[in-house]
Design a protein around this nucleic acid. Structure first.
Lengths: 186, 186
DNA sequence: AACTAAAAGCAAATAATTTGCGTTAGCGCG
DNA sequence: CGCGCTAACGCAAATTATTTGCTTTTAGTT
């Protein structure tokens, strides 16, 4: 029912997980989402359906697992010269990625299952990125919002709009940032 | 695939919809969510499964439809004497309802399907409620945030926390409101 | 190298979903 | 008022997905 977090690397369990994840990613990229089924995934990953059912429970949990792992950023926020610009660049990229069809779908997948572990992971990933920005500003002695302020007044409005309303424009994102960093005119 | 919005009241279609919605509500209240299936719902609603499949497509879409209709508020925000207190009372109730197990599940159901119509409905419902508060403050000449500010800095953080993080405490909600209404000390 | 426990494969049984076709109910029209 | 017309429903057979008991494989341990 629950995907193992740390099956020892190289073990059989890890190989199956990798094959299944890869199969899901391939299929999501190449076909209608409604046509992605566990038997098909199993066939592509060269495992039997019952293996998937036993490990993940159902399609939604598998999709949530895959989506959460794809939502983990692999790089630090790029440096642009100022904390403010770092934040702006990061926020715009975050909004773009999450607003895209694939991004929105991954968020949905993560939220669809009742187990909240995957959603919490997304939140933690975002906070990790923001903490880097906060630390950089701190090192330089630049004024900067707290992590909580960034989550509440930049990340949350972006995510709400993506999920419930219209996807935020770059102007919208810039406006949110101006609100938490009013000292710089921009 | 798509639930009819306005089957003429009294028609057969409307009766089936009402019976199915009722069956879903009853079952969600009384049993494990994972055990709620379309054949069971059909049995309880006295329709055949194929009727449900043809009208709603699959379980997720049906649940999303039911959840959206349950998320529509049936009353105006209560009056408390001041615009600020109205807002605070409304926000606390909103946070409570959405944070509850049933509330969280309904939001999840609404977000789970790729059709965004139901999610947009939720956003509209919230904005309708907030517009009432804005209009009241306007009538009285009290200073008050705009609708957009309320959505961005009160509703969005509450919803983000519910979906991705920990459910917000009343203190947290009050803090968010203080931020958009700093003129009153409270 | 044999042992063990966890995970995977296999296949039969069960359950859900799809679909073709006949039937019914509500609606407009004469 | 009654006569079609159409959209929606019921029914049942066919298909597909899911569950489950049992066996086999595998990686780690002694």
């Amino acid at each position: 029912m629950v995907s193992k977090e740390n099956p020892r690397p190289g073990g059989r369990s890890a190989r199956v997980q990798a094959a299944v994840h890869q199969a899901v990613r391939d299929m999501l990229a190449g076909m209608n989402r409604a046509d992605v089924t566990i038997p098909l995934i199993a066939q592509r990953a060269n495992v039997t359906p019952s293996t998937i059912y036993r490990r993940w429970g159902d399609l939604q949990e598998l999709l949530a697992d895959v989506a959460a792992s794809r939502l983990q950023p692999e790089t630090e926020p790029p440096k642009t010269g100022s904390a403010r610009n770092d934040l702006q660049a990061w926020a715009e990229q975050y909004a773009d990625e999450m607003s895209s069809g694939a991004g929105r779908q991954m968020i949905r997948d993560v939220l669809a299952v009742s187990d909240t572990a995957n959603a919490e992971k997304c939140c933690i990933y975002t906070q990790q990125q923001l903490r880097v920005l906060v630390a950089r500003a701190d090192e330089r002695g630049e004024a900067f919002p707290t992590l909580t302020e960034l989550m509440d007044y930049v990340v949350s409005p972006i995510m709400y709009r993506i999920l419930f309303d219209q996807v935020p424009s770059n102007d919208c994102v810039r406006g949110l940032i101006s609100r938490v960093m009013p000292e710089n005119t921009d």
